[in-house]
Design a protein around this nucleic acid. Structure first.
Length: 270
DNA sequence: ATGGCCCAGTCCCTGGGA
């Protein structure tokens, strides 16, 4: 966890794979109260839109846009100010998996565009699931090119299911044949970055040991056997405003936690 | 000792996650 030193007005934006929003509602409401992000991207809702706990979240002063489906996947954006949202990642009209929602957030100084992304896991690789992952990454690249042309502050936030580099895993050797860390996966992620995106956390520190996921199995949390797979990618116009980034690691220590913790950025908006 | 869990569904097992 890194604390922002910024004294000027900031926009605080976080992303969190909650692994069932209904199982995690108590933790989610506590996080909204304590961290009070201006916007929060959620992934793995694991429920349809009509089962999303909208009223409890609105009660805390958040506007809500969901893109859910039965049992699996599902993404949402919560924000303090009202906003417009669009659902689904362009590029494959036959794709029925709810993994992408995009919002245009008003601020005191223009708009910030924000996407909540749940990129496919891709295991086992090779196979149909890995092919779907790479195709999804290609679609995200294509859509990103389109969005970058607006020259706005843009944040692609979510569970990318990509370990970018060895320093982003406690035990890289464990992941060598995994879809999260295969050379082709990492190359595709670099292709995304090379469009002009900044990995917000990496722009603030070179340190290893900063993770956002610890498996439920094998005592991964107790042994700090984590990986960094939840990312906030900033367009050039967003990167210009970056004032802080970090991970809210302490949420992994709660009772019945998500296996992911929130990651966040702060942007100067004065 | 190289494994240990958790979630939703129609549910006492399976598929999916990472």
């Amino acid at each position: 966890m890194r604390q922002s030193l910024a004294k000027e007005p900031v926009l605080r934006i976080a992303t969190w794979n909650v692994n069932s929003v209904r199982q995690r509602l108590g933790h989610l409401l506590a996080y909204l109260k304590e961290a009070s992000p201006d916007a929060l991207c959620l992934q793995e809702l694991k429920c349809q839109d009509d089962a999303f706990p909208r009223a409890e979240i609105e009660e805390l002063g958040y506007n809500v846009a969901t893109h859910g489906q039965k049992a699996f996947n599902g993404v949402a954006i919560l924000a303090k100010r009202p906003f417009e949202a669009t659902r689904g990642l362009p590029g494959d009209s036959a794709d029925e998996q709810a993994r992408y929602i995009e919002a245009v957030l008003p601020t005191d100084k223009g708009v910030v565009r924000l996407a909540s992304i749940y990129l496919p896991n891709g295991n086992p690789a090779p196979g149909d699931k890995y092919s779907y992952k790479l195709a999804f990454m290609n679609r995200l690249i294509a859509h990103s090119r389109h969005l970058l042309a607006f020259e706005e502050p843009l944040i692609l936030a979510g569970d990318f299911n990509v370990i970018p580099e060895p320093r982003d895993a406690a035990d890289p050797a464990q992941w060598t044949s995994d879809a999260l860390f295969l050379p082709q996966t990492r190359a595709k992620f670099r292709e995304q970055l090379a469009l002009g995106f900044t990995d917000a956390l990496r722009a603030t520190t070179d340190a290893g040991g900063l993770y956002t996921f610890w498996d439920y199995q094998a005592g991964s949390w107790q042994r700090d056997n984590g990986i960094r797979i939840d990312h906030l990618l900033l367009s050039p116009q967003a990167a210009d405003l970056l004032s802080g980034a970090g991970v809210d690691k302490q949420l992994r220590a709660l009772e019945k936690p998500s296996d992911h913790t929130p990651a966040w950025v702060e942007l100067r908006i004065d």
